[in-house]
Every structure is written in structure tokens, then in C-alpha cells.
Nucleic acid binder design. Structure first.
Length: 519
RNA sequence: GCCGCGUUGGUCAAGGGGUUAAGACGCCUCCCUUUCACGGAGGAAUCACGGGUUCGAUUCCCGUACGUGGUACCA
């Protein structure tokens, strides 16, 4: 549209945790900005004082940090267009609303909330369940369109609470271009006279976005599809305020939907279906209710981002795993889908699995150590890294680490003897008691291969099939039929610990066999 | 109700007037592995419906259905 430097913004209202859709909106903004070597600004839209939730803004900052989607300008960072919090810009908006009134594009309305309720109640019908304040009804209401200058002046002088509403044209076709949807058109007569300035002097979203996008020189406005129906209001505002030549290009992003149909994905769906919807844990300061997040579940931010970007975008090839650098290079709005995508937690986990699998052991250990500490397990980073290397290929989320690795950090408290006890015999017992002292003759810190060679050598010597011995051995070490290759476990545990577990194990099997024969 | 937007396997999706309609997740079978996983090889499964336009429509147009969003002094 023009060759201004690209500037985009993410403009959340601080009312709670950030959900998937919100993060994806950030992501697309961010990628677009970086792709075009532009700037990404975070603006806090806290114009509704009744919905303001303390801590929500900090949560958003933290969330963007975790995702690696940090803004170039924000309330926290500052920037050339400060302030970035709309509540702190309150004084700015009134003049623009007044300017619109003066030009005949807006008007004062004195209807109280009770009067509006009564109005809706009165005109409600099966054919029209939600009557609008629009060109058909505004003549019946208490507004400056229906009073003399003297009456208006009297009300204003008396400081009568009032709002300013846009006066939507009766019957104009408004056509605009959406970067994703192409040409979109509305009849202005079907859109209601939205409030621009509230009785408390705060702007509504409609006025605030337009004014701030103009003042902050935003070139591209991306937001969720739920804003599409109010786009005509915003576009008219750009025109009426005389800024049309600087109007940003629009793109309305497709929604992220519930996996089981019927609607936008919501916080409730996560609770219901058992997966997170928020990026990070969020605790409502009022109710203390905790909503779980992807971060705490054990998602890697890069996987979270990759999973999100594929919900509604692809580069046209078969590639599915992208680094942030690749995304910045390849992202383009015209490959964003028009239709909403149902969220699939299984696929989300698969992405995380891929990333965990390919992440280096040291980095994983750093992430895992605090999680172990919470279980009062304190191990050094090197050991955790070794274990991580052994089990990472079977982790879908980091929080599963313990279930796959506890036996590295503590002896199994129970043994799943059911699979082995029936086949346990004196020969097998003898094998293990014979092998036990042989372990001391091995090199100092035997490798898995050393252990395996020694194990097999003895088995062959004693004429027992190696396969018959491996499962009992595994269960001695881990307590069950799971875990990485046995000799890797033994090597990681070390000779001394391995010997102890064998000794315990032999005993356990003996008892299990006795118990079975008695009953 | 009205208005907007959408509709390729169960899900994410490529494609686009003539194709055996990619690929991924999930599911199933087999191989590897005497655990599980990873890896590998296969398999089942899709163009919402009805009219046009056309020699030919999954692809273009129009309807219908369905889905979804909006219809607040919330964003």
C-alpha cells in the first residue's frame, strides 16, 4: 500500500491468561514484522476498568519472553510512542471523539444503561432478538440528534453522563481488502452505532485502536476473525478522522476451534478435555483458580511456537518443523488459511516430542533439574543429562520425565514379578549370583557394551539363552518392563548400584516363587 | 432473526478445470528390538449437497445445508 516501515502491534486487554489464539496472533504479527525488518509493538488495551485483572500484564510480558516473541516497544520497554497502556492515554481520545461529533459523524447519547436495557427489552422479538442502536432506532433515543442545541447545552453543562456514538451511514456499501480474505463488503446500515467514548471518559476498543494505530504509525493490523464484523466501524473512523491514506492493511486471522466442534477454543475446553489452553499457568488473583499452561506441562517454547504456526499456515512444502529463523524467512500472510482450525492436542504433543528428541542432553538437564528438585530429588546436571539422553526419545512432555526415569534416581520400591516369576528357576538364580562378583573384574566404569559382553559370555557359558535373562535383569534394575536398553541402564547406574539391585532382585524372585507355590 | 466469514480423510493440510487428490498427526499391520520407545515398510480413510458454465469440474459461478464469528458504555 505504501513504503512505510512495517509496524505491527499486538493489543491484548489484561483480563487473564493468554490462550493459544492470542499467542498465535502475537506470533503472526511478530513473524510478519521480522520478515519485513519492521517493528513489533505491544500495546495494553486496558480501557475496561471493570475487567482489569492485576497481574495479567506481567503475565503477558512473561509469556512473550518465554515464547521468544519479544516486542520492540511495550509498556515495559518503552519506546518512541509512549505510553503504551491505553489507560495512560485516556486524555488523548476525547478530542478525536469530539472532532467526529463536530463533523457530524458522531453524536452524544444520554441513554442510561437501564434505558438501553428497557429499549432492547421493548423491541425484542423472535425475528429480532437483539435490537440495535442504529439508524432505525436512534431517533427514539435520548441523544443529541433528537434535541435542540439549547437542550444539549443544558445537559452538557449539567455534566449529565453521556457517551459518544458513531453515526453509521444509513445505506452505504463499504468494501475493503483483507490480506487473508480478499475483498470483504458490508452495508453500513446494518452495523450499529457503536459507542466510541464511554461515560467514564475512556474510549472503547473501536476508538482506541484507530487512534492508537494512527498515532503509533501502525502499517498492518492483524487480529482475530472475531473483529471482522466491526471492521467497517474502524474503517469509517479512519476516513472520518481524515487519516485514510495512512490506514493500515488489515488481516483477520482464522480462529482456533475446539477439537470436538462447536466454537472457539476456550479455557473451559482445556479443563474439560484435559489439555492446556493457556501458554503458561495462570492463577486468577480473585478466585485463586489455577489454569494450567503449556510451559508447566513441559512444552518447549520452540515446539509450542512451531505447533501454533502450523495452525493456519504452511509454506506449501512438506516441511513441518521450522526454527524461528526459518519461520521469519518463510512466513507470509497470503499463505494463511481463511478457515478456522480445530486444535489437536495429539499433534501438539507430537511437535513437542520431536523437539525434545532432538534437543541436546545438557539443555534438557537444565530444564529437568528444577522439576526433579520439586520431587526432592537432587542430582547433578551431568547425570541428569545422561539419563535425559537415554529417555528423551519417549517423552512427549517434559513432565513425563520422572515416570520414564525414576529408577535412575532411586531403587524401585516394587518389582513387577508377574512376568518373570513363573519362569524363574535355580539356573537363572545361579547365573545372577555368578555374574555378581564378575562385575568387579570389569574396567572401572564399564560401558553398556562391556556389561553386555560379560553378561552374554556367562550366559553362553552356562547354556542359558540371553533373552531369558534380560527381562529378569531389567526388572531387577527398574522394577518393571520399561525403560531404555538394560545395559545402558546398568552402565548409568554403575557397578555398585547394579550389584545391589541384582542382589535384591534375586531375593525378590525367590520370595515370589515361594509365595506362588504356597497359594 | 439479521449481518459477516468459512467448508479437501477423525484432525492439521498440499493441490487446483483433465492428478493414482501430496504430506503430517492419530489408528491398524509388518520389520527392527527378547521391555518400551526410536527408526523403517505398508494399510484403512477425504474433495458437504444441488444446480449451472465447460468436451471435462474437487477446482469457476449461483443456491442450499452445515459450521463459525458478530449483533454490549467487553475486548
Amino acid at each position: 500500500m505504501n513504503n512505510r516501515k512495517v509496524r505491527v502491534r499486538f493489543a491484548p486487554s489484561p483480563t487473564g491468561g493468554l490462550h493459544l489464539g492470542g499467542v498465535r496472533t502475537v506470533l503472526f504479527n511478530y513473524l510478519f514484522a521480522k520478515h519485513h525488518k519492521g517493528e513489533f509493538v505491544l500495546r495494553i488495551e486496558d480501557t475496561d476498568q471493570t475487567r482489569y485483572v492485576p497481574g495479567a500484564e506481567e503475565y503477558i510480558n512473561e509469556c512473550l519472553r518465554w515464547c521468544g516473541l519479544e516486542p520492540d516497544e511495550s509498556p515495559e520497554k518503552g519506546g518512541p510512542y509512549e505510553p503504551y497502556r491505553q489507560s495512560e492515554r485516556k486524555a488523548l481520545y476525547r478530542q478525536y471523539a469530539e472532532q467526529l461529533v463536530a463533523a457530524g459523524h458522531a453524536y452524544y447519547a444520554f441513554d442510561t444503561p437501564e434505558e438501553l436495557d428497557a429499549f432492547r427489552e421493548k423491541y425484542k422479538s423472535p425475528e429480532n432478538p437483539s435490537p440495535q442502536y442504529d439508524h432505525r432506532t436512534r431517533s427514539k433515543m435520548r441523544n443529541s440528534l433528537n434535541m435542540t442545541d439549547a437542550e444539549l447545552k443544558a445537559l452538557l453543562d449539567a455534566q449529565t453522563p453521556h457517551v459518544i456514538r458513531i453515526k453509521m451511514p444509513e445505506n452505504e456499501t463499504l468494501v475493503f481488502n483483507d490480506m487473508i480474505r480478499g475483498e470483504v463488503s458490508f452495508n453500513t446500515g446494518l452495523v450499529d452505532d457503536k459507542v466510541l467514548l464511554k461515560a467514564d471518559g475512556m474510549p472503547t476498543y473501536h476508538l482506541a485502536v484507530v487512534v492508537d494505530d494512527y498515532l503509533m504509525k501502525i502499517t498492518h493490523a492483524f487480529r482475530g476473525e472475531e473483529w471482522l464484523p466491526s471492521a467497517p466501524v474502524h474503517i469509517l473512523l479512519w476516513k472520518y478522522l481524515g487519516w485514510e491514506s495512512e490506514m493500515p492493511e488489515w488481516a483477520h486471522l482464522p480462529l482456533i476451534l475446539k477439537p470436538d466442534g462447536n466454537g472457539k477454543l476456550s479455557k473451559r475446553d482445556g479443563d474439560r478435555l484435559g489439555f492446556p489452553v493457556y501458554a503458561m499457568n495462570w492463577k486468577d488473583p480473585k478466585t485463586q483458580e489455577l489454569t494450567k499452561g503449556f510451559r508447566e506441562l513441559g512444552f518447549l517454547p520452540e515446539a509450542f511456537i512451531n505447533m501454533l504456526v502450523m495452525l493456519g499456515w504452511n509454506d506449501g512444502t512438506e516441511q513441518e518443523i521450522f526454527s524461528m529463523e526459518e519461520l521469519i524467512e518463510k512466513f507470509s500472510m497470503d499463505r494463511v488459511h481463511k478457515s478456522g482450525a480445530k486444535f489437536d492436542f495429539e499433534k501438539a504433543k507430537w511437535f513437542n516430542h520431536q523437539y525434545i528428541h532432538h534437543k541436546d542432553n545438557q539443555s534438557l538437564a537444565t530444564l529437568l533439574q528444577p522439576m526433579l528438585a520439586e520431587k526432592d530429588v537432587h542430582a547433578d546436571l551431568g547425570f541428569i543429562a545422561t539419563v535425559a539422553g537415554l529417555v528423551k526419545e519417549r517423552l512427549y512432555v517434559l513432565s513425563e520425565f520422572w515416570d520414564h526415569s525414576f529408577f535412575f534416581f532411586q531403587r524401585p520400591s516394587t518389582h513387577d514379578t508377574g512376568a518373570v516369576a513363573p519362569k524363574w528357576n535355580a539356573d537363572k538364580e545361579k547365573f545372577f549370583t555368578t555374574w555378581l562378583p564378575k562385575l568387579d573384574k570389569l574396567p572401572k566404569q564399564p560401558s553398556a557394551a562391556d556389561l553386555e559382553a560379560s553378561f552374554k559370555e556367562l550366559a553362553t557359558e552356562m547354556g542359558i539363552k540371553v533373552g531369558e535373562l534380560q527381562l529378569p535383569f531389567r526388572i531387577m534394575l527398574t522394577g518393571g518392563k520399561f525403560g531404555p536398553p538394560v545395559f545402558d541402564i546398568a552402565a548409568t547406574l554403575g557397578v555398585t548400584e547394579t550389584q545391589k539391585r541384582i542382589a535384591i532382585g534375586v531375593d525378590v524372585y525367590k520370595k515370589a516363587v515361594e509365595a506362588a507355590s504356597q497359594s
